[in-house]
Computed example of a mutant assay.
Amino acid sequence: MSGRFLSIGECMVELSQADSGLLRKGFAGDTFNTAWYARACLPKDWSVDYFTALGDDPMSGEMMEFMQSAGIGTAHVLRIRGRTPGLYMINLTNGERSFSYWRDSAAARQLAADGDRLREAIEASDVLYFSGITLAILPRDDATTLLAELRRAKAVGKPVVFDPNIRPRLWSSLDAMHSTISEGARASTIVMPSFDDEAAHFGDGTIAETISRYRALGAAMVVVKNGADGATIGTDDGEILVPAERIDTVVDTTSAGDSFNGAFLAKFVIDNDAVAAARFAAGVAAKVIGEHGALVPAEKLGL
């Protein structure tokens, strides 16, 4: 079975520390990272496309070329005159990572401004993926447009997958964050939260509470990631814990959740077996955190 996987969100320019005080340039972003790992894990007869907005500057062109070289389709990427991509820099202090962002005028904030083009991209796809960050960076009306189109896709039976990926500083208020994240879940078939986020920002005391809350909002399946404690799958059939795969040395946890999501969905859309998909994704995520950087090449994943 072939199909089209569409990931919707923001890819940014990444600056990380290199030798001699220099900075290394890359490209990354939560939904793009997931698209990267979905592409690495899906059969070749599946296409993986990215929906975002970029500028008309050289850096936007370079980012487009990078996506294409990774086998990720860019036909639905909007190009906006006078705009540029967002940028973030990784700061390292005694091995601990922190981030500085420059994204207020990023082109990706306008990715849902053209509702017709958004609908065209969604209608051309079989599986849709988005995140809480996707919703957070959009103007309120544009977020409403995106959610309406995703609800239409869900209503006709397309899998719509949502990672809440909660980042409070991107939201105008906690009320806006809580209500919009909940609306994102209502538009979705599968919700893939991280338990530490849900405990911190929704007050969930247990994974069962997280599953129950998102199931009550209309998700048919909830896959709660909980780091080294594995992932719990909640459906009508109950809850199943799939253990994480242990590794000796954790090098870099960047993109652990994104890689799990991409690998899980790649396996699940083919076999429709959530437990097998979670076991496969745990193996991929274990390899990712054993390497540096958000985007680990497929050959290092053993795929």
Rank of each mutant, 00 (worst) to 15 (best):
G3F: 02
G9W: 00
V13G: 05
E14A: 01
E14M: 06
Q17G: 13
Q17I: 05
Q17C: 07
S20T: 10
S20V: 09
L22P: 00
R24T: 09
A28N: 07
T31D: 08
W36D: 00
Y37Q: 03
A38F: 13
A40S: 14
K44W: 00
K44A: 14
K44R: 08
K44P: 00
D45F: 03
F51I: 00
L54A: 10
D56I: 13
S60A: 13
E65M: 12
E65R: 15
F66T: 08
M67F: 15
M67H: 08
H76V: 00
V77T: 03
R79N: 04
I80H: 10
G82I: 07
G82Y: 07
G82T: 07
G86H: 13
L87E: 02
L87Y: 10
Y88V: 07
L92V: 13
L92A: 09
T93S: 14
F99Q: 08
R103V: 06
R103P: 05
S105G: 08
A112M: 07
R117Y: 06
L118F: 04
L118E: 05
E120A: 15
I122T: 05
E123M: 07
E123Q: 15
A124W: 02
T134F: 00
L135H: 11
D142H: 07
D142R: 01
D142V: 02
L146Y: 11
L146C: 10
L146G: 09
L147G: 04
L147K: 03
A148E: 14
A148S: 14
A153W: 00
A153L: 03
A155Y: 09
V156T: 14
V156H: 01
P159C: 11
V160N: 04
V161Y: 01
F162C: 12
D163R: 04
P164H: 05
I166D: 07
W171T: 14
S173I: 10
L174H: 12
D175G: 01
S179Q: 08
S182Q: 13
A185P: 02
R186N: 10
S188L: 11
A199N: 12
A199D: 04
F202K: 12
F202Q: 09
G203Q: 04
G205L: 06
I207M: 08
A208G: 15
A208D: 15
I211W: 05
S212A: 15
S212Q: 14
R215Y: 00
L217F: 06
G218F: 12
A219V: 11
A220L: 12
V224Y: 03
G227H: 00
G227P: 02
A228N: 08
D229C: 08
D229L: 12
G230N: 02
A231G: 13
A231D: 11
D237I: 03
E239I: 00
E245D: 08
E245M: 04
V250A: 08
V250Q: 11
V250E: 15
V251N: 06
T253V: 15
T254D: 00
G257W: 08
G257N: 08
S259Y: 13
N261G: 10
N261P: 11
L265W: 00
A266C: 10
F268A: 02
V269Q: 02
I270G: 01
D273G: 04
A276H: 02
A277T: 09
A278R: 01
R279I: 06
R279V: 10
F280V: 10
A281H: 05
A281K: 05
A282H: 05
A285W: 07
K287M: 09
G290P: 04
V296Q: 14
A298C: 05
K300A: 13
